[in-house]
Computed example of a mutant assay.
Amino acid sequence: MRKVIIAALLLLAPGLLLASETAHLENADIDLRDQASLQRGAKYFVNYCMGCHSLQYMRYNRLAKDLGIDTVSLRENLLFGDAKAGDLMTKSMRDEDALKWFGVVPPDLTLVTRWRSPDWVYTYLKSFYLDDTRPYGVNNVLFPLVGMPDVLGDLQGKQEAIMSPPHEPGGEPMVTGVKLIEQGSLSPEEFDSMVRDITAFLTYAGEPIQLERQRLGFYVLLFLGLLFIPAYLLKKEFWRDVH
């Protein structure tokens, strides 16, 4: 048994070491009840992200209904080209063009916050830094060798990597964070707020019924709690003669 435990620890050690070296995830602190934040996030996503990334399970009219967006605002701010209110939110870039320009088709982001977590998405969007070795001149702390250009770079500004010394002599230094060296068109506070809005919108898109599910869950638990009382009394009545 002792040998089995030691072997398991040896197998897990590299993973634990790697986990300890990854960048710290910032708290996204989103509020799905903040409808204004979700509306801003939808606008930012359509304008900055949807050229390459789709939300293939979300329809414009469903988004408008959930977020309190009227028809006029929907058409003026979220519908471009020949898109219609009942259409799915698909990207404008063709897959063959994406393969030619990026070498990979950008993923659909409908479920990204459920797969990665809102904190990961929030931190990822803030963690691009200058790297001359990459095709688009940037890299990312959470996603090394990322193929995505920094589409929000003009808003955030330029960042450089914060390097930690190598753990072993002759080893490679590790990127542990980023530092802003040239501010963009937004202040750090304004950029953080923008990224938080985008993250909140993507969290909503991953499960549009989340708030309704939570609301109904309260009543379901209340019903089960009340049902327990007659069920318990009925059980006692059935088993009275046995005991």
Rank of each mutant, 00 (worst) to 15 (best):
M163I: 11
D132V: 07
L74Q: 06
M58C: 05
L16Q: 10
G206F: 01
L233N: 12
N77L: 10
S187M: 05
F238Y: 12
F45R: 02
G225L: 03
A231V: 14
D34C: 00
N61G: 06
L130I: 14
M93W: 09
S54P: 00
D34V: 04
L63M: 15
H24I: 13
L216K: 06
D70G: 08
S185H: 07
N47F: 03
V242L: 07
I181Y: 02
G170R: 01
F45P: 07
G41F: 00
L224Y: 11
L202G: 04
L180Q: 06
E160S: 06
L32I: 06
K3M: 09
P230I: 03
L12N: 06
V46N: 02
L9Q: 09
V105M: 02
L125A: 07
K91E: 05
P14N: 05
G103A: 04
V4R: 02
R215V: 11
E172C: 04
T133Q: 09
R40V: 12
L67E: 15
R40K: 07
V105P: 01
L224A: 13
M174D: 12
D95P: 02
M89C: 06
A231H: 09
E21M: 11
I69Q: 08
I209G: 10
T71V: 11
A85N: 10
Q214V: 04
Q56R: 15
N140S: 08
E207N: 14
G86A: 15
G103T: 01
L233W: 15
L25I: 12
Y48D: 05
Y60W: 08
G103I: 05
K84I: 12
